[in-house]
Amino acid sequence: MKITIIGGSGFVGTRLLKLLEESSCTLQNIDKRQSLSYPKITTVANVLDKEKLVSSLAGTDVVVLLAAEHRDDVSPVSLYYDVNVGGMRNTLKAMEANGIKRIVFTSSVAVYGLNKKCPDENHPADPFNHYGKSKWEAEQVLQKWYQTHSDWNINIIRPTVIFGEHNRGNVYNLLRQISSGKFLMVGNGNNKKSMAYVGNIVAFLEFLITEKTAGYNVYNYVDQPDFTMNELVEHVSKVLKIHIPTTHFPLWLGMSGGYCFDLLAFLSRRKQTISSVRVKKFCATTQFSGEKMLQSGFKAPYTLGEGLAKTLEFEFYN
């Protein structure tokens, strides 16, 4: 079987290629950037170039579409829709031209929007930002496509925030702040945060490729059980063998400090590391249901605690 990963030069794609190279599959990576880890199997091409996609996908059996614009500061915002939605359309047309009928697509829990109570896969979509909106539009393109291509196999994964070794995203920044010893806990710390370790994400993608070979399937991905912020701080302290102050500051005091930084950012015209929005997000419960994934037969190779420990030891201990 030949598996082509579109957008495989990044964080998740590199880990997925590393996992899949242990199998007997033939692998190909298509990305606008050359892969530092897998240059020999990488075709440099943009998902917006339909003709290049058509020629590059020849002989492929399964497509894994990871390519996306996902940063918070993408400009112009039309790029979200050009890449995430237009790239989906180009991929489907290139697949059809090559007789390929299997695709695994990485969407996002961002399609649910903010402040939802542990939404499952049947929860109405309500994205609040351009990233979430463009991911939902891409899913709608897939839904419409399946109506006229019922013999296709379409698998969609909606992961929560992903962390792991070599990633410099939101979870890394939070872990770095906690481990620095300068961490301030705002609120009671009982709010829970859904997270996903990259080692489990790529294992689930492999599971979808090998086990879910028919129909249209949508799965949230969350490593469960979720940690509270108190449990997360305790885990970081245990893994790194350091004492982390556990003084709790009331939400009103934290928000007041956030508003002060908002004012400073406005007056200085410079972004600050702290803001009222970030304080509010920190204190919010952000949970998503992973029940359907748990019932699929998939067994995560790592617990959430093990994934965090591997990341902490790699980034801050060794």
Rank of each mutant, 00 (worst) to 15 (best):
R15V: 07
R15K: 15
R15F: 12
R15I: 01
L16K: 13
K18I: 12
L19T: 11
L19K: 15
L19G: 11
E21Q: 15
E21D: 14
E21N: 15
E21T: 13
E22D: 09
E22N: 13
C25Q: 14
C25T: 10
T26V: 12
T26N: 09
T26R: 14
T26A: 13
L27Y: 05
L27E: 04
L27R: 10
Q28W: 05
N29T: 02
N29G: 03
N29V: 08
I30W: 04
I30P: 14
K32M: 13
K32T: 06
R33C: 12
Q34R: 15
L36S: 15
S37W: 04
Y38M: 09
Y38G: 08
P39R: 01
P39N: 00
K40P: 04
I41E: 11
I41G: 13
T42M: 11
T42W: 07
T42H: 09
T43Y: 10
T43Q: 14
V44N: 10
N46Q: 10
V47Q: 02
L48K: 07
L48I: 10
D49H: 09
D49W: 00
D49C: 04
K50N: 01
E51Y: 04
K52F: 00
S55M: 05
S55H: 07
S55R: 10
S56K: 09
S56F: 03
S56A: 15
L57R: 03
G59M: 04
G59L: 00
V62K: 11
V62D: 02
V63S: 03
V63I: 06
V64W: 02
V64G: 07
V64C: 11
L65M: 04
L65K: 08
L65F: 10
L66Y: 03
L66T: 00
L66N: 06
A67T: 07
A67D: 06
H70W: 09
H70V: 09
H70M: 09
R71N: 14
R71D: 10
R71E: 12
D72C: 11
D73H: 12
D73L: 05
D73M: 06
D73V: 08
V74D: 13
S75Y: 13
S75K: 15
P76G: 06
S78L: 08
S78Q: 13
S78G: 08
S78K: 15
L79V: 12
Y80A: 00
Y80E: 03
Y81F: 11
D82G: 05
D82F: 03
V83Q: 11
N84F: 04
V85H: 08
V85E: 04
G87L: 01
G87Y: 00
G87R: 06
G87C: 02
G87S: 09
R89C: 04
R89P: 09
N90K: 04
N90S: 03
N90Q: 06
T91N: 02
L92A: 09
L92M: 03
K93Y: 12
E96A: 14
A97T: 08
N98Q: 11
G99P: 15
I100M: 07
K101Q: 13
R102H: 11
I103L: 07
I103K: 08
V104E: 04
V104P: 13
S107Q: 12
S107M: 00
S108Y: 02
V109D: 01
V111E: 02
Y112A: 02
G113V: 00
